[in-house]
């Protein structure tokens, strides 16, 4: 039986936690993460003979490190590389919510966009052309109502397809102003040279241009930690094996 990790991202008040509760039921607990002062809930659910570990990232308006919440959410997506990131959007205020979705799609292509509160939107006279949005975003897009369990099956199907690699989405490429694009083009080669391809190059370039110091310190910490840590881990495995 395979096991995948799913991260839940989204604005505050989009019903992200409702979806989390709907999927994991009472199989969840909250915990502190990596020394950061932010709580994240973690839970588990099964779908189609597959177990999914789900992390409810803090609800944020963006991932541009304006707050600890945003840093934690960003670091999780970039460094922990979940198999799928579900971006939960509020169907009644897509303008703002898509803002976050686009930011996530710049970081990872393994994403599923989940438009929540679709029944509420319908009731309020908001008509959403799902196919068009999916076509523009370039990742599977599903409309659901977490509280009334509408569309959950469709969502999980897409999540599994992306997690298992059966779908390899090509997300939208945001076109920036010529000036920014020119600067990006100048930065990207040296990023690829220094960091390899383990991180999304264009996104790193954007963050650097933006002067995102917190991302940089996270990156540094990672690079310093990875080698000694993995060595230590191997050593301890060895010890356990000896017993």
């Amino acid at each position: 039986m395979s096991r995948y990790t799913v991260a839940l991202a989204g604005n505050p008040n989009t019903g992200k936690s409702t979806l989390f509760n709907t999927l994991t039921g009472l199989r969840q607990h909250t915990g502190n993460w990596a020394g950061k002062t932010v709580m994240m809930a973690e839970g588990e659910f099964s779908y189609d003979k597959t177990t999914f570990r789900m992390i409810d990232l803090p609800g944020t308006y963006s991932l541009y490190s304006n707050s600890t919440d945003e840093e934690v959410a960003r670091d999780y997506i970039i460094f922990e590389k979940p198999d799928v990131t579900i971006v939960v959007l509020d169907a009644t205020s897509l303008e703002r919510n898509l803002n976050l979705a686009l930011q996530v799609l710049e970081m990872t292509n393994r994403a599923v966009v989940c438009i929540n509160l679709i029944d509420e939107a319908k009731r309020l006279g908001v008509r959403i052309d799902l196919q068009k949005i999916e076509q523009r975003l370039g990742v599977p897009t599903v409309a659901i109502s977490a509280r009334n369990r509408i569309g959950i099956d469709k969502l999980l199907k897409q999540v599994k397809l992306v997690a298992s690699g059966q779908i390899n989405p090509h997300p939208i490429h945001i076109q920036y102003s010529d000036e920014i694009e020119r600067k990006l083009a100048e930065l990207e080669p040296s990023i690829r040279e220094n960091l390899g391809s383990q991180y999304p190059t264009r996104w790193i370039a954007l963050r650097l241009l933006d002067g995102d110091e917190s991302l940089l310190s996270s990156l540094k910490k990672r690079m310093n930690e990875v080698t000694p840590d993995s060595v230590r881990e191997v050593a301890s495995y060895g010890r356990t094996a000896c017993h």
Binding site: T92, N99, L130, I174, I180, D210
Partner: peptide, 29 residues
């Protein structure tokens, strides 16, 4: 640059919404 990045993302979302989201009645919303 910061402002440029954010407003370009916003332009994109507005684009997407303009062609795929339709409000029957803002009052109701």
């Amino acid at each position: 640059v910061r402002d440029g990045i954010v407003s370009d993302i916003y332009r994109t979302t507005r684009d997407i919404c303009a062609e795929s989201v339709h409000y029957e009645d803002k009052k109701k919303l």
